[in-house]
């Protein structure tokens, strides 16, 4: 089947199987910033924005994107560029595998709640696992980014 979906502002037509999930479609279509980390929607490295809201692309059928908008980190380069400065300052990125998904979640958080508490930041990002950093440095970097420090 065919789906019409806007990816990073561009209209696309994807040729898919009805059972395809968005993660696999995106990687096949060369959106390689979207990573795969698990088989059951539990790690968050595949996070993308669906109509501006963060979702795990491995948990959404591609068919459901018909007429909707999908954003990968390729679509928020400026924000990711800036956020990465804050991550860099705190040493909050190690292997980097979790960071494109994290950037999208942080971007969505900022849009939704520009002044979140520490608890709200944690709550919003729980679904984005990181095995390298121990989280605290990321937390500080994200808070500084949101406060534009």
């Amino acid at each position: 089947m065919k789906v019409n979906v806007k990816v990073n502002g561009q209209n696309k037509v994807f040729n898919i199987e009805p059972g395809d999930y968005l993660l696999d479609t995106l990687r096949k279509e060369n959106y390689l910033s979207v990573k795969k980390g698990c088989d059951n929607s539990s790690c968050g490295v595949c996070t993308v924005l669906f109509d501006g809201k963060p979702i795990k692309s491995c948990s959404l059928l591609t068919a459901k994107t018909e007429g909707h908008e999908v954003t990968t980190v390729e679509g928020i380069q400026k924000e990711a560029d800036k956020l990465s400065d804050y991550f860099g300052a705190e040493g909050a990125d190690q292997c980097g595998y979790c960071t494109p998904g994290m950037a999208l979640s942080v971007h969505a958080l900022k849009e939704e709640n520009s002044n979140p508490s520490d608890e709200e930041i944690k709550e919003y990002l729980t679904g984005n696992l990181c095995r390298c950093t121990g989280y605290q440095s990321q937390h500080i970097a994200i808070r500084n980014y949101l406060e534009d420090k």
């Binding site: 968050g44 795990k56 709550e123």
Partner: peptide, 9 residues
């Protein structure tokens, strides 16, 4: 329940 991205779906 899980994180925000799952609850958005």
């Amino acid at each position: 329940i899980m994180g925000v991205p799952i609850r958005n779906v």
